[in-house]
């Protein structure tokens, strides 16, 4: 027998917590999916990260 009685209040709060958790998971999934879609479209994948990158330097022409 549980020590505390389950009240309707607990069920409602549990439902709210599950709802918020699912929304957050869904948001993460959307951001991840969007990132993949943007990369597939050829968005910038390489950026300056404080290291010398020959591929990012503009070639000098005479």
């Amino acid at each position: 027998m549980p020590l505390t009685e389950t009240h309707d209040l607990h069920r409602r709060r549990f439902g709210r917590n599950v709802g918020v958790a699912l929304c957050l998971l869904g948001f993460c999934a959307v951001v991840f999916g969007l990132t993949i879609a943007k990369i597939r479209q050829g968005s910038e994948m390489e950026a300056f990260d404080h290291a010398a990158r020959p591929s990012l330097t503009v070639e000098e022409t005479e």
Binding site: H7, D8, L9, R12, R13, G15, R16, V18, G19, V20
Partner: peptide
């Protein structure tokens, strides 16, 4: 009185 507490559906 907790009867007035919202369910998730209320936010929807």
């Amino acid at each position: 009185d907790f009867e007035g507490e919202a369910r998730f559906g209320d936010y929807i």
